[in-house]
Amino acid sequence: MAVYKQTYKRYDGPVTGSRWRFMILPRYSFQTAFESRGFTAFFVICFVPSLIGLLALYFRSNADILASVGMNFVSAFPIDTRFFLTLFQIQSFLTFVLAMFLGPGLVSPDLTNNALPLYLSRPFSRREYVLGKLLVIVILASCITWMPGLLLFIIQSNLETGWMSGHMRIAAAIFLGSWVWIILVSLLSVAVSAWVKWKPVAAASMFGIFFVTAAFGELTNEMLDLQTKWGILINLSEVMNMIWSYLFDAKTTYRTLPVWSAFLSFAAFCSLALTVLWRKIRACEVVR
């Protein structure tokens, strides 16, 4: 508009549909996140385990050729549940670090600077706001967990005829296990970001949650001195290990507790995070 024409003009042009409007938040958050070289470098590093896995698959499928040139060690490691579980655990750890990097910066700046009334005075609901913020972590975490995991599974299936039919559970475990972890980590990090408005403290709190729940779980076990160690259900890391072990059908030391209790504990932690978000994400606070 020419400078001399500057005046207020009502907007009467086309309007985007409201169904996918929450995707605006991840788009802007990605731009902000990838402006940081540190984060970009870290995100690239997150793909290294998958690349190493890919190399392992390649070497394993060409073990005979490699053995002929004296590289016999390749045939020593099998491509099985253990291989994928180990890779998955590394990816899960990286997801946790990613959530620690990103999560605190998602909601706390909006709360600190009182920007929520600006979001929520638009045709944009609290639910869409939370969903948009969660998707930032969900999308990036998906890129480094189940997407490369399933890709490796498909590659291995192509490299070794007949391997897929005997290992279908691995694919399901990668997919479901990743989603369980991604949902938990994204909900916790966004909830902590909403609860603790100061970014560095929010990052530390996210880390602390896992330590505190582990310590609290152990303390509960010691205090109650029960035959069945129910305190494990307060320990987030152990809860996730139980779920993953069940999904991957791996041997575990926690067989004393039923798996449903781990899923129940997972649901309880998610509900708690959602409750925090529901209470904190408001256009205006009511003083009681």
Partner: peptide, 13 residues
């Protein structure tokens, strides 16, 4: 711009 998009304006507008 983000606030305009949240109000329903297409990115270019």
């Amino acid at each position: 711009r983000m606030m305009a998009e949240l109000s329903g304006l297409p990115p270019e507008a």
